[in-house]
């Protein structure tokens, strides 16, 4: 059969283009539009070039918030990824116990963000919360509303509790996909438990780990609801992360130009870091 080039075929792409335009391009361009103008009202806008961007990048409050955000995401990844792998490795392979573990793991994932915040807000209280009260009874001076360190740890703990199951589930599925033949070969080759993990399980978890790392990075980098419900970003601004700062800027102060410029920078950071992770992990075992 001879192929006939027909440019009308491009019309078939139209629905996708429309969908992408409406869902991503148009909103994004609106933000771009705001970020380069100073708008006083309808029909009363001035082009200001890169002024908002320079402004935003120099803003100390934002810089601090960005730093805090990176610290938080790094901590989240450093804890949740190894912990998730560990949990997945310890889970039974099959049977009733495996199903039970899966259900237990899935429960935190089913709870809405603000409910998670509320749960921990109460759970960690020193007077009526079991966790906070328990720590205090053990002689630790724990108070997440007063002590920045405690607040930080509580937010972190909350995130670990909420999202480690996701990493664990992903890894568990990856582990189950490894054929038995590999374990048999490893046993024949006298591999230690560590060697089995390092040379069989870990390499075969690579693909799910790409997903887990990216999801956890993006999600944690955009965290908003939980710390907002738990501490409102306090004490002081110790748990005020990027998206909360942005919200204050855009909704609280109605500073649209700055907020738009900041949104774009935020977006580019997420994109850049995700790309870095993705490239790093997928290039790990190419032939040198």
């Amino acid at each position: 059969m001879r192929k006939v080039p027909d440019n009308r075929a491009w019309w078939l792409v139209l629905p996708v283009l429309l969908l992408v335009a409406l869902s991503a391009l148009v909103p994004l361009m609106t933000v771009v539009n705001y970020s380069v103008q100073d708008i006083f009202g309808p029909g009363n806008a001035y082009f200001v070039g890169t002024e908002w961007f320079r402004d935003v990048l120099r803003d100390e409050r934002l810089q601090e918030s960005l730093l805090r955000q990176f610290g938080f995401s790094a901590a989240v990844l450093a804890i949740e990824i190894p912990l998730g792998i560990g949990v997945a490795l310890m889970m039974p392979r099959s049977g009733v116990k495996a199903s039970l573990c899966l259900i237990l793991l899935a429960i935190p994932l089913l709870i809405p963000w603000n409910v998670v915040g509320t749960i921990w807000q109460i759970f960690a209280r020193g007077d009526i919360g079991l966790f906070g009260w328990g720590l205090n009874e053990l002689g630790l001076d724990y108070n997440y509303t007063g002590n920045p360190m405690d607040a930080w740890l509580t937010v972190l703990l909350m995130d670990v509790w909420h999202w480690t199951p996701l990493v664990a589930l992903l890894c568990y599925s990856g582990l189950r996909a490894i054929p038995d033949a590999f374990y048999q070969a490893a046993e024949i080759d006298r591999a230690s438990r560590w060697a089995v993990f390092r040379y069989i399980q870990l390499p075969r978890l690579r693909n799910v780990l790409v997903i887990a790392v990216l999801l956890r990075f993006m999600d944690s980098f955009m965290i908003y609801t939980e710390p907002f419900v738990l501490t409102g970003g306090g004490p002081g601004s110790s748990t005020t992360f990027l998206s909360q700062t942005l919200t204050t800027l855009a909704v609280g102060q109605f500073d649209l130009g700055r907020a738009a410029a900041f949104s774009l920078v935020y977006f580019l950071i997420v994109l850049l870091v995700s790309w870095l992770f993705f490239t790093a992990i997928t290039h790990m075992d190419r032939d040198r």
Binding site: A181, F182, Q184, I188, Y199, I200, L202, P203
Partner: peptide, 12 residues
């Protein structure tokens, strides 16, 4: 030592 019917290599 045992060699299996289908190849098992540690691919990383």
């Amino acid at each position: 030592a045992q060699v299996f019917q289908f190849p098992v290599v540690y691919d990383s």
